[in-house]
Nucleic acid binder design. Structure first.
Lengths: 213, 213
DNA sequence: GTAGACATGTTAATAAAATCACAACAACAA
DNA sequence: TTGTTGTTGTGATTTTATTAACATGTCTAC
């Protein structure tokens, strides 16, 4: 399903809507109102309705949105029909954390492999995900048609890893190192840096504190 | 130092500018141009200049910006003069990852404590940070005047932890669980969810792939 | 039926963020 | 002196994201 130019933020929220909806599916409810979704995610009902409008979904005026239908539609939009395979590069604490978080989330994304250089980790399975030596990365990525890579190695190594991923034919990279990466335009890159986030919190916490004093 | 209403994104970038600048301080350079900073972070030079304008810093027309001065000024703006103390709640893989990342970053933020319920972790020190039982959280937070909390516990427990943090007098929370939290307005809350990020990458990777084919 | 309560869907308005475009200026070379 | 180059600083514009406002529709109560 194709919808032209879905805003970045909307894509993020769709992912969250889906998860929230999956959580309430169990509770024998079949429909949900925009204000209920909004409350779960602490955003406004208008925001929810606008997002759903953008993906062309219409709810029932009296009953709200059909939960199952909506979950399915979101899937059609954000998931790739044939699924996408993911690998984590760097099986340190963060790599492990990611795999654990990921586990059990059924979806079109599957975590196929981890890569590391530590001999104690290689050829072992962590939380269902096998770990290989980084030397084998290109080979395994191509073999398994892995299209998304998550970088959780030490910062200095990030650029070479990124380059290798790109050469292996990866389509998207999620970079958790503080080192900004350079990738060609046909590879989608998302970067997140914990320290920046923390400093941001620190700044606004301080500011808030002054304001409310 | 007070500057009214610095945009969120600018605050994030200031943190990154500072880190980038600290990295090049060593290399006997004393000045830097906006396009150099921009290149390091993969943004535009205009963006850099605009941000610096917002914090009221003026460079030298011919030499660029004085690195030391700029680092200092950024510190004056985003750091709290008396420093801020941080605690991690949940010493699982993610909690550990955060502490490791944090280590060695000199700054006005200090990582004071971790909390967990696992007896094997309690009363031990991980990467220089002592771990206590969650029961002691309020007490230790107050004692040490900790003002920022990072939540890395399993999602179900996040709301109660958040509430406890707020009651303990925390001023800012960084929530890594997928559970959206509710906090009073005087507490600054930042949320980040790895799965959402991954799904976003997956979506745009897929889209990019179609577009460039 | 018809008024009231309460949803959705959407256009319009506003706010936040990024970019464009260019004036102003310093150093240098001819 | 005068042009050339390459920079900063910033008003104007554009783009992206959010919020307001309200028309429209459906059920319920009377």
């Amino acid at each position: 399903m194709f919808i032209k130019n879905l805003p970045h933020k909307t894509v993020e929220r769709l992912s969250q809507y889906r998860r929230a909806l999956l959580m309430i599916l169990s509770k024998d409810k079949t429909h949900v109102f925009s204000h209920e979704i909004a409350q779960m995610l602490h955003i406004t009902p208008v925001q929810v309705r606008r997002d759903l409008m953008l993906i062309g979904y219409s709810g029932n005026l009296r009953k709200g949105y059909d939960i199952k239908e909506l979950i399915e539609l979101i899937g059609k939009i954000i998931d790739s029909e044939r699924g996408q395979r993911v690998a984590v590069v760097g099986l340190g604490n963060l790599g492990k954390a990611f795999i654990s978080y990921f586990k059990g989330k059924r979806s079109k994304l599957s975590m196929i492999a981890a890569f590391d250089v530590n001999p104690e980790k290689i050829n072992r399975v962590f939380d269902g995900v096998p770990c290989y030596h980084i030397n084998q990365m290109t080979e395994i990525i191509k073999q398994n048609n892995i299209s998304i890579g998550i970088i959780t190695v030490p910062a200095e190594q990030a650029p070479e890893i990124a380059e290798a991923l790109v050469l292996s034919g990866i389509k998207g990279i999620l970079n958790y190192t503080p080192k900004p990466l350079n990738v060609p335009a046909y590879v989608y890159l998302e970067e997140y840096d914990m320290i920046t986030s923390l400093e941001k919190v620190a700044f606004f916490a301080k500011k808030n504190d002054e304001r409310f004093k």
